[in-house]
Amino acid sequence: MEKRVTLGHGAGGKLTQDLINSLFIPHLKNDLLMEMGDSAIIRKKPLRDRLAFTTDSFVVTPLFFPGGDIGKLAVNGTINDLVVAGAEPLYLSAGFILEEGLPFEDLERVCVSMADACNNGGVQIVAADTKVVEKGKGDGIFINTSGVGLLRPKARIDPKRVAPGDSILVTGTLGDHGISVFLARQKLGINTNVKSDCAALNTLLLPLIDKFGGDIHFMRDLTRGGFATILNEMAGQSGTSVVVREDSIRVLPGVVAVCEMLGFDPLYLANEGKAMLAISPDVAGKVLKHLRKHRLGRNAEIVGQVDQAGEGKARVFLDTTVGGTRLLDRLLEDQLPRIC
């Protein structure tokens, strides 16, 4: 049978990885791309500082949801990709693909929201482009943003520096964004107060880099695929195993309720204002205190520990709430497509 792209290829899991490895990498390969970070770190002269460069596309449906919209998401998403690489975000580009018939009012709302997000995040959009496609060939608005930032001098974020004994921290509750968008889309008649956590993480995380520098080994924002997927990526890239305690993971009651009802797992749901860190255990207590002082980090928690990879297998284990143990594997399927 002829091979075709299915929705699963965009889910951020195994199929996406296969698509990247078998199609994109062979054609687009270069040294910077192959580092596979959230940002490309440019070390070339004549730049005096290390430059971070990233891109992301946003196709969320619906365009507006409790706690945010596609514009806020497109700005904060790219800001956060730079921040978790240890960079201060500076300039963004924005590419819009609009569907014929889109009300001006909606577009204006999105632009206002992008401007607000830029102000809050301390970035400027310095390049932009718009294309329009025929009605039925798009879905209102798609946005691509790219961003550049300068690495903080003390930033040394690299999965290869993750070592057994490191503490794993999460900056807050999991799954808010995924559930908020899902409920806005499906109109299931479920009333919750769950709002997307969409936010720029620079004021939360950059001071940590300045203060704790090399003790912060790894940072990622917990977007598509969620906490469990990112943890597995980290374990794979660092050649370690991770043990996570389920009862230390915070999930809002409204998110738990929807997940129980519909069979989603909050550990795989997208977040747009949360990050996980792997740090030296010596500074874990101090970092936690620091995070909790910030509005966006008040629910931060130490959730686990890095361990040796047994039998050479890098895996993530979850000690469950009832005291059992199981694997916490990669995302296997498209839990919720088009969430960002």
């Binding site: 979850l318 000690d319 469950t320 709430t321 009832v322 005291g323 059992g324 143990t325 199981r326």
Partner: peptide
């Protein structure tokens, strides 16, 4: 059974 690791108990 598997999600909570009950068999390990």
């Amino acid at each position: 059974a598997t999600r909570f690791g009950l068999r390990t108990l």
